[in-house]
Nucleic acid binder design. Structure first.
Lengths: 355, 355
DNA sequence: CTGAAAGCGCTTACAG
DNA sequence: CTGAAAGCGCTTACAG
């Protein structure tokens, strides 16, 4: 902001400084400038310092487009995830595709390794494959297992750029991209606390997914907040179910037929099946329903007032950023090591279309 | 997604198709290919069709990096806005800066024309200036006035790429970038309806800002929803105030001292001043407070439970996209004419840090 | 209407 | 350790 109130900016033609200008100013060839720029060595300390000084003085910024053009190597990235909860993972996939298209021109190829059933062994096999094939990057939804951590660390040791997304696992990866599950559960807890009538009886329905710890953390966060802000509410029960949702549907029907529940919290996308049960029993205006994620089905149940609030986690962004981070680490010299937490999106009927 | 379950993708080395390949396949020079690619004319219909066919058959995609490099022209974009509500507009500014940095390398220069007090005359003057100076693009927060519309249309006629942001005004601009005010008000209405206790008495505080119609629309949306979903709630009054917030603070103190209010809706960033009054009177746990926007001050009042919910409008994104859309129109051939509606973000204490 | 040449800013072998 | 040359894919004058 170099403007003053009402003043007309000067069209200062500050000429762009190129690598040629630096070479000239330092009295060396541009190959040499390139070497110091990227620490490729083979430069005497003396000329190195001279070049560095010129770079600073002239305020040189590398031209990314030119670099992309000149670099001719092809990088390969492997993306490993599963597609249970199909509606959800399709959104992740569209983010991956978007990054893929954007970086294809820069010589990056992405291969997908998709599992249709969570399996530590299968994932391990994929990681080993990526190591053997010498992939340059790996974006993965890691399962909780020491063997997975080990394998990922070996990949990193080999120079592979590894990013975890959607679920995290302790290892020497570049960074994690995804939601803060605990906080997202807390958000759900606060919202439930805001909307549930006094003395509500509530249940929690939470799927068990082997190897993914995020789901449990959501419930932890939910419980923590609700217990504090709504001591009047009474927990009727916590029900586990399988990921497919059929169990959740049946269970909800039973609960509704018992007639002793006013509010339901579902810790992931399975909320769509719970909503179906609520809708089928025609009690959507009596039951407060809070869940996670946003698929087409969930949108429908928000639109018809069955689901009150759902918490989104920007799945498309997760896929996009996971791949982009690797691309940047590969293409540019700077590696971004800070985790990327996606937004905790609160979605109700009115803002459904604006996200 | 061309993968199969468990299958290992083929590292198909699909060679990238360049303009040279097209020229060769069509038996012409690459200058000719370039001409048909960008409809620069001076190509016989016959060769044009031949080239077009090759482009389609070989699946040619232009290399953006190469184009950027080769294009040597410098484009200038004028950005016109005001910085009343400083905290808010600083966020917009940071988005503008981000786009500026990203596109500087591609030869785009952005000049800012910032007004510190809304004035149709002053804005008109800036538009005329931009026309005279033959700016290539204009991003503007237009005020409601026929003279502004006229001037913008003249700019468009001259070939200038015009984008409106944050506030819209009927004219032949490329597109609008900003929030859907009506819907954002509806969202606020629904949320207030969710959290206000039965039979609450509420007030609405809404700043009057000459030339900006978005604010009024928010209240329209709020009213529409709340009237339907909470007929039990009683409107105690609607208060206008000046943008600076001092009035809003005083008014709120009076209302609180009268003691007949349970809930307050504030239609923009002035909610921070209303919150200050609520906090100063120590009644934050009794008063439900819903507002708009998210500044540091507002964050503080959410953190200490004074503001229950605020609705964000992605100001940083507004600044970024407004400039980016113009850059794309200038640099690429495709003009994106669809409006960009920013997210209607629901912010509470728990998801404050994750957005 | 059309093609060959030069150049954008950088990187990559290659020859010293 | 260092420089000159060629080339990335495209656009821009220029000469036919």
């Amino acid at each position: 902001m170099n403007e003053r109130e009402g003043a007309y900016p000067q069209g200062k033609m500050n000429k762009i400084v190129t690598i040629n200008d630096i070479a000239e100013a330092a009295g060396v060839g541009k190959g040499t400038v390139d070497r110091v720029l990227h620490n490729r060595g083979r430069v005497s300390e003396e000329t190195r310092e001279k070049v560095l000084r010129c770079i600073k003085e002239l305020g040189y910024k590398p031209n990314v487009a030119a670099r992309m053009l000149a670099k001719r190597n092809v990088y390969r990235i492997a993306v490993v995830y599963h597609n249970t909860e199909r509606d959800f993972w399709e959104q992740v996939e569209s983010g991956i595709s978007r990054a893929e298209e954007e970086y294809r021109q820069m010589g990056i190829v992405v291969d997908r390794y998709i599992i249709s059933k969570i399996s530590i062994e299968k994932q391990l096999e994929f990681i080993e494959h990526a190591i053997r094939e010498k992939y340059d990057g790996l974006a993965i939804v890691p399962y909780s297992s020491a063997s997975i951590s080990d394998a990922l660390n070996r990949a990193v040791s080999q120079g592979m750029k590894v990013v975890t997304f959607n679920n995290d696992e302790a290892c020497r990866r570049l960074c994690y991209v995804g939601q803060d599950s605990l906080q997202s559960g807390r958000t759900a807890g606060r919202l439930m606390g805001m909307i549930a009538p006094p003395n509500s009886r509530y249940v929690v329905i939470t799927p068990v997914i082997e190897g993914m710890k995020g789901i449990d953390q959501r419930y932890e966060g939910f419980k923590e907040i609700l217990n504090v802000c709504r001591p009047d509410m009474e927990l009727h029960g916590v029900y586990n179910c399988r990921q497919d949702g059929k169990q959740a549907y049946e269970r909800t029907l039973e609960l509704l037929d018992e007639g002793s529940v006013d509010a339901i919290y579902v810790s992931n996308v399975v909320v769509s099946e719970v909503a179906r049960a609520v809708f089928d029993r025609g009690v959507q205006h009596r039951i407060k329903l809070v869940g996670h994620d946003l698929t087409d089905t969930i949108k429908d149940y928000i639109s018809n007032d069955t689901i009150d609030i759902t918490i989104g986690q920007e799945p498309e962004i997760q896929g996009y950023i996971a791949v982009e981070r690797i691309c940047k680490a590969l293409l540019q010299d700077e590696e971004i090591k800070t985790d990327y937490y996606t937004k905790i999106e609160v979605v109700i009927k009115e803002n459904l279309a604006y996200r």
